[in-house]
């Protein structure tokens, strides 16, 4: 049969047939995804452009080294690899849902769609934890000649180059009493917070060993904006993908597709979901690996 198809050239453009042999909605989903790829591409290329314009850029292994429940353990890349695998697996369950749709197997569609939704929600939870950890986790940073406790936000970046011991020693003199108390208590647990709060500036500075602190200068401010902007935009895509999948699940349950005679809608939702996974592959590359 395949040879027959090869011998006779099909005239796709002479009317009566779909030139791309594809349903309209699915074709338009492809073109939407192509335009969305340019949107994400523009964001990532802008990030690359700014990154190449800097002498220093934070090492992702230093920034992303936390894992939920692991405290201050240094685990570079561990958590983001979990997120990546969650998204890959949810993409696979979506493939299985689409395949079940082709066979008109309602129960299997429901099962695999539900797993895809679980995967999407798990990914969003991971991202929420990561953002929360980056924003609220405060790091002693050398900014404008003094040490400040800052988190990773869009206005300040605690992941600059390691400050020299002499610069840190100078900065300690200008550092606020409150920050000094925090610095000492984070390394020396033998003295209570109240006792430290009662000590003089000089006493506190003498308790700090500037060389042990590994204090960093403030890094390029653009890092935060790009990271939260792009991962946020991707996270919003994941969120809308989850919403679309939930709608598909409800429609499947209500036999909408069964009555229609085909599950092409699941296929279009599937395309969108795979695209979300595809974008993450590049976000993962640009922010976490290189």
């Amino acid at each position: 049969m395949a040879t027959t198809a090869n011998v006779h050239q099909t005239k796709w453009w002479s009317g009566g047939k779909s030139p791309f042999n594809m349903e309209y909605g699915k074709l338009m989903m492809w073109y939407f995804l192509m335009s969305d790829a340019f949107t994400f591409g523009a964001f990532l290329i802008s990030y690359g452009s700014i990154r190449f314009s800097q002498n220093f850029w934070p090492d992702p292994n230093v920034v992303f080294n936390a894992f939920p429940g692991a405290g201050h353990a240094n685990l570079p890349l561990a958590f983001v690899s979990v997120m990546t695998f969650i998204l890959i697996i949810s993409s696979v369950t979506m493939v299985l849902a689409v395949h079940a749709g082709h066979k008109g197997d309602k129960q299997a569609v429901v099962k695999w769609l539900a797993w895809t939704i679980v995967g999407g929600l798990a990914f969003l939870s991971c991202q929420a934890w990561e953002w929360h950890h980056l924003i609220t986790g405060e790091h002693a940073t050398l900014i404008d000649g003094q040490i400040k406790m800052v988190g990773q936000t869009t206005t300040v970046n605690p992941w600059g180059d390691l400050a020299s011991a002499s610069a840190v020693a100078d900065a300690l003199k200008n550092t606020s009493h409150e920050t000094l108390v925090q610095l000492v208590s984070s390394h020396d647990h033998s003295v209570s917070h109240e006792q430290l709060a009662g000590m003089s500036q000089e006493k506190l500075i003498s308790m700090v060993n500037a060389a042990d602190l590994h204090i960093r200068e403030n890094g390029p401010v653009a890092f935060g904006g790009y990271f939260y902007g792009i991962t946020g935009f991707h996270g919003f895509h994941v969120f809308s993908g989850v919403v679309i999948n939930i709608i598909m699940l409800i429609m499947t349950q209500k036999d909408v597709f069964q009555k229609r005679g085909h599950y092409l809608m699941i296929e279009k939702a599937g395309l969108y979901w795979h695209f979300v996974d595809l974008v993450w592959v590049f976000v993962f590359l640009c922010f976490y690996l290189i």
Binding site: N21, V92, F275
Partner: peptide
């Protein structure tokens, strides 16, 4: 990216003209 697009998204199974667009 190639494997996701061509296998999971089935772009590899489409008509060549469509793939090119």
């Amino acid at each position: 990216a190639y494997y996701i697009v061509s296998v999971f998204m089935h772009l590899g199974d489409e008509i060549r003209n469509m793939i090119m667009t």
